[in-house]
């Protein structure tokens, strides 16, 4: 089993606040890796560092064995390492189909291609992806008028359209109505198994991440706290303390 993303001793500070301190982790190919931690523990900062949103202070990040620490956001995205945003971001003035069309992979984009129309296959693929997330009926609506949950699904479909090798999802179920969450989990799993996309997921909803991920990393106060299978993490005393504070143990003693 190879590691697609290898993060080695990455540190990032904003002024005096250390958001990430010597974080090391691996995202194995073809699996679903989870990243949890209390609010402010540095999860999103780590995501931003991996996709090149800001330079890291020290350490290195490799993707498929290739050093990407110094690369820019767009270059990294074109390599096939994609992220979705915690505050869902779509192109709100375009309709759903167009949102997907413009998300096609840009790896081999040419200057001539920029001025061309979309081939029929691209449209068919866009419709398939919308169908996959259950938005086919709304494909001609302006995406800014969709509900928040539907926008989240649309953003997920856009990411799939881009044919990434790894998809970094920042809280995919936040703000989605509970009955839709199961459907979303099912689709995430199918993206991993049927499309072979490696997933790396930040999630606060514990039942979701426990049923989704093969292995989970836990951050707290910018440091790596624990790593293991869902069951190990669930029963790890340090993780429980980090989430609920030291009182938890005292109350249960």
């Amino acid at each position: 089993m190879t590691n697609l993303i290898e993060v080695e001793k990455v540190s990032k500070a904003f002024g005096g606040i250390v958001a990430n301190s010597e974080i090391s982790l691996n995202v194995p190919e073809g699996r679903i890796t989870g990243l949890i931690g209390p609010n402010g523990s540095g999860k999103t900062t780590l995501f931003n560092s991996i996709v090149g949103y800001h330079p890291v202070d020290s350490g290195s990040i490799r993707f498929e064995g290739k050093e990407i620490t110094q690369m820019k956001v767009q270059q990294i995205a074109r390599l096939g390492l994609l992220r979705t945003f915690q505050q869902t971001r779509i192109y709100s003035g375009l309709n759903c189909i167009d949102n997907l069309l413009i998300s096609e992979p840009h790896r081999s984009a040419t200057y001539m291609g920029m001025l061309m129309r979309y081939p029929a296959e691209a449209r068919e693929k866009a419709e398939r992806m919308l169908d996959f997330v259950g938005l086919y009926q709304k494909r001609r609506l302006i995406s800014g008028e969709l509900s928040f949950g539907q926008q989240k699904l649309l953003e997920f479909a856009m990411a799939l359209m881009n044919e990434p090798k790894v998809l970094l999802l920042d809280e995919p179920t936040a703000g989605i109505n509970p009955t839709l969450i199961n459907g979303l989990i099912d689709r995430l799993k199918r993206a991993a198994t049927e499309l072979g996309i490696t997933l790396f997921v930040i999630e606060h909803n514990m039942p979701v991440i426990m049923s989704l991920a093969d292995n989970i990393y836990c951050l707290a106060n910018g440091k790596m706290l624990a790593h293991g299978a869902p069951d190990e993490i669930r029963n790890d005393r340090r993780v429980i303390e980090a989430y609920l504070g030291g009182h938890y143990e005292a109350e249960n003693a």
Binding site: Q74, I90, L94, N162
Partner: peptide, 25 residues
């Protein structure tokens, strides 16, 4: 009516998102 039209509209709506998607903004 092609890629150019959607790309410039995408830049108008959210340039940072377009960058994160790998678009040659």
């Amino acid at each position: 009516s092609g890629r150019f039209g959607l790309a410039v509209n995408a830049i108008r709506d959210d340039e940072e998102k377009a960058e994160a998607m790998g678009l040659h903004t």
